Amino acid sequence: MRAVIINSYGGPEVLRVAETPLPEPGPGQVRIRVAAAAVNPVDLQTRSGALAGLLPPRETIGIGWDLSGTVDAVGPRVTGFLVGERVVALSDRLALPAKAQADFAVLDAEAVGKLPPDVDLVAAATLPLNALTAAQALDLAGLRPGQTLLVTGAAGGVGGFAVELAARSGLRVVATADEQDELFVREAGASEVVPRGRELADVVRKRVPEGVDGVIDAASLGVAALDAVRGGGVHVAVLGGAPVPLRGTRVVNVWIRADGPRLTALAAAGLRLRVAETMPLSRVADAHRTLEKGGVRGRLVLTID
């Protein structure tokens, strides 16, 4: 089978679509025939070596976290999936010789969610990493209906899902976004949209004088976002680098974990799935170059024939 791999760190040119052995599912695992796999910033970080300190030494590292497709085979002790079922999944282990961007992927059954028949397979590949991160960040925030949540980077992958899920749960959402993204963010459920910038806390506190009850800091603004939170509130850092918990705030990091049942629920929730562009697997290096340029709205998705 084909799989996107690297054998050294560097620019997009180190990416290879290589022939690799077809993996066999072990106990508790399923093999998925991949239909589509999203390209995420973490893929660029893996390829460039930015995550090298987190990876054990390996000659070959597979690329990709998000995938959708159909169950191709099931291992022993798997009772929840049938061959041919449409699924969506998250490959959340950093160092595997083949990951989501491949013809086939073997994952623990607990990392796989079922996909409703009305959800497009290509669009579904944009769901796992970002929607699960947003949902798990909201869990950590622990806010109650009626409380106020600030979401930074609200037009991005994690931020967009965080706004939508928070609004559905009854939170008042204040979101940061550029003017060109304001309509998208409001349609996701934001009550207030404020511009990004150095004076974020002052701008937010003009709308919410006492400070918001919590923030999901998808844009990694750190102290600038924390300063908009009331004393004793909560700051959820999405990409690490959590700020010092000033003023009695509770500061936590969300570290994504695969969760098949949660994925099943998210896939059935009718969330907005944004595909910026599709490319064949052979153009994975072009996808990395496009994402590195910035300005992409939605996810780039590799389609597997």
Results as ranks from 00 to 15, higher is better:
R2L: 11
A3R: 09
S8F: 04
T20D: 12
L22I: 05
G26N: 03
R33W: 00
A35Y: 01
L44P: 01
T46P: 08
R47D: 02
G49R: 05
G53I: 08
P56D: 00
P57Y: 01
R58A: 14
R58K: 13
E59M: 04
E59G: 10
G62L: 03
R86Q: 06
A89F: 10
K99M: 13
K99G: 08
D108K: 05
D108G: 15
A111P: 13
A111S: 15
V112H: 10
P116K: 05
V119A: 10
V122Y: 12
V122H: 13
A123P: 14
A123D: 14
A124E: 12
A125V: 13
L127F: 06
P128D: 12
L129E: 04
L129M: 12
N130F: 01
Q136G: 12
A141Q: 05
Q147V: 00
T148V: 15
V151I: 08
A154Q: 08
G160D: 11
G160Y: 07
L165K: 07
A166D: 08
L171Q: 09
A177W: 05
D178Y: 00
E179K: 15
Q180P: 06
Q180C: 07
Q180I: 02
F184R: 13
E187V: 11
S191C: 03
V193Q: 14
V194L: 02
R198C: 00
R198F: 01
L200C: 09
D202N: 10
V203K: 06
V204F: 03
R207L: 12
V208Y: 09
P209G: 13
E210M: 09
D217R: 11
A219E: 08
S220C: 12
G222W: 02
V223Y: 05
V223T: 12
A224W: 00
A225R: 11
A228G: 13
A228D: 11
R230M: 12
P243E: 07
V244C: 00
D259W: 04
G260I: 00
A267V: 04
A269S: 13
G270N: 11
T278M: 04
V284Y: 02
D286E: 15
A287F: 09
L291H: 07
K293F: 00
G298Y: 04
T303G: 13
D305P: 15
